[in-house]
Simulated assay, not measured.
Amino acid sequence: MTITVLDTFTGMDTVLRAPTAERSARLTAMLTPMAGMYRFFPGEVDLEAMHRMSFGFPADRENEACRDALAMLHDADAWGRISRALDDALAI
């Protein structure tokens, strides 16, 4: 089994640095690789709506707080730690 940890840091950083008018398109681009996660949902899933309703950050406000939080996650190697933990779990 292969588990892929997506590089959402780059995508989130791109969204949060973009002018407000461009964020929707950049958010969609970031979320597109996740579309397969919803293959059992009936019909086509609106990824931006799913982002807003669940695990997403606000793309229209609190920009500085979101960028600060993203930097903290990056500095803590959150993506690497998640990847290593999943690899370790698969090895058991």
Rank of each mutant, 00 (worst) to 15 (best):
M12D: 08
R39W: 10
T10C: 05
R39D: 09
D7E: 07
T8N: 12
S83C: 11
L16Q: 02
D13G: 14
F41Y: 12
L16H: 03
D75V: 04
E22C: 11
A69I: 07
N63W: 12
A18L: 03
T2N: 15
C66M: 15
R52Q: 12
A18C: 03
T32S: 12
A85V: 08
D46T: 06
F41E: 10
I82N: 00
M53Y: 11
G36E: 01
T32A: 07
A78G: 08
A49I: 06
E44Y: 08
L90H: 02
T20H: 13
M30D: 01
T10V: 11
D75A: 11
D77L: 05
V5A: 05
A35S: 15
A69L: 14
M1F: 10
M72T: 13
E62I: 07
G80C: 04
G36Y: 01
D77V: 00
V15L: 04
S83H: 09
M12W: 14
R84K: 07
T14K: 10
S24N: 09
A18I: 01
R81P: 00
A59Q: 12
N63V: 08
T8E: 10
E62G: 13
F40I: 07
M53N: 14
E62C: 15
P19D: 14
T4V: 14
R52P: 06
R81T: 05
A85W: 07
T28C: 10
A29W: 09
R81H: 04
A35F: 03
R23E: 00
A76V: 01
R17I: 10
T8A: 11
M34G: 07
F55H: 00
A71C: 05
E64N: 15
P19G: 14
R17V: 14
D75F: 10
W79C: 13
T2Q: 15
I82Y: 00
R39P: 08
M72E: 13
R67P: 02
M37H: 13
R39T: 15
V15Q: 03
D75K: 07
L6H: 07
T32C: 05
E22T: 06
L70E: 02
M50L: 15
S54C: 08
S24C: 14
I82M: 04
P19Y: 05
T28N: 15
E48C: 11
T4Q: 10
L86S: 05
G36N: 02
G80N: 00
M34W: 01
C66W: 10
A89K: 00
F57I: 04
M1A: 09
F9Q: 03
W79V: 09
D60G: 04
H74A: 11
R26N: 14
S24R: 13
V5C: 11
T10R: 07
G80D: 03
Y38H: 05
A25G: 03
W79N: 06
M30C: 02
A49Q: 11
F55V: 10
V15E: 01
M30S: 03
R67W: 02
A25S: 02
M72G: 12
M50S: 15
M12A: 11
D7V: 03
M1K: 10
M37I: 12
M37L: 09
A65Y: 00
G80K: 02
I3N: 05
A18Y: 04
E62L: 12
A65S: 06
I3E: 06
L73F: 02
R52A: 11
